[in-house]
Design a protein around this nucleic acid. Structure first.
Length: 209
DNA sequence: TGCCAGGCCCTCTTTAGGGCCTT
């Protein structure tokens, strides 16, 4: 129960909505076991369409780079093997899960595992933070970063460090022995004001066995 | 031609509106 692995993933895309024709252009992911990054996945992917100047400037990924990249289908087959059946984590998971499911559908692959959202969790654990964007949280919590933003692997690594930091903080602040994935999923669904009491009760239950 | 995301969360709320967060 306490030793589970998660894959923290991040997409760069042509825009905000797969329902609006947007596609993935890069995926980055880290595999975390025992609160340590033990593996990484990164690839650009050719969406078969030109990306906007805005996306080129936002990500630093150019149309020229994408012309030389493998197809989305090739990359998604490899990523499906990487994520296997591990739990999934993303910052604003509703965004990444929509793109993941849309691109997996094109290779007739169905996701079997659940997501946890580090954005929803950070709002409950760090209400004092001036914001809950990944960039703000990295500054607020002094997380490990190479200074790169809006590239898939760099964002996945920072989200991974945020995730590990949240688990450490939960253990320290609430005296939790273990922080099961399901507990974090439940925490992201309780109201922000109810989160502290929810965590105190979870810790009591663990002490009672 | 003109349209253009979706979900969370707060509040001057629930017969709603707007900021935040993801690209």
């Amino acid at each position: 129960m306490g030793n589970y692995s998660v894959v923290v993933l991040d997409f760069e895309t042509t825009g905000l909505s797969p329902n609006n024709g947007d596609r993935a252009i890069e995926i980055g992911a880290v595999l975390i076991e025992n609160n340590r990054i033990v593996d990484r996945f990164q690839s650009l992917m050719n969406p078969g369409m030109k990306i906007s100047r805005f996306i080129e400037e936002y990500t630093g990924i150019t149309n020229q780079m994408l012309q030389a990249a493998p197809s989305i289908i090739q990359v998604m087959h490899k990523f499906a093997a990487f994520m296997a059946r591990h739990h999934l984590v993303a910052h604003n998971a509703s965004f990444d899960s929509r793109f993941l499911d849309a691109e997996l559908q094109r290779i007739n692959h169905t996701r079997c595992q659940e997501f946890a959202c580090s954005l929803l969790l950070s709002r409950r654990l760090y209400p004092e933070s001036p914001g809950h964007s990944l960039e703000t949280l990295v500054r607020h919590k002094s997380l490990t970063t190479d200074g790169v933003h809006h590239r898939a692997l760099a964002d996945a690594e920072m989200t991974g460090h945020l995730w590990m930091g949240m688990i450490d903080d939960l253990k320290a602040d609430y005296n939790l022995k273990q922080v099961p994935f399901q507990l974090l999923q439940q925490l992201s669904k309780v109201s922000k004001s109810a989160a502290p009491v929810f965590l105190q009760r979870a810790a009591e239950k663990q002490r009672q066995g």
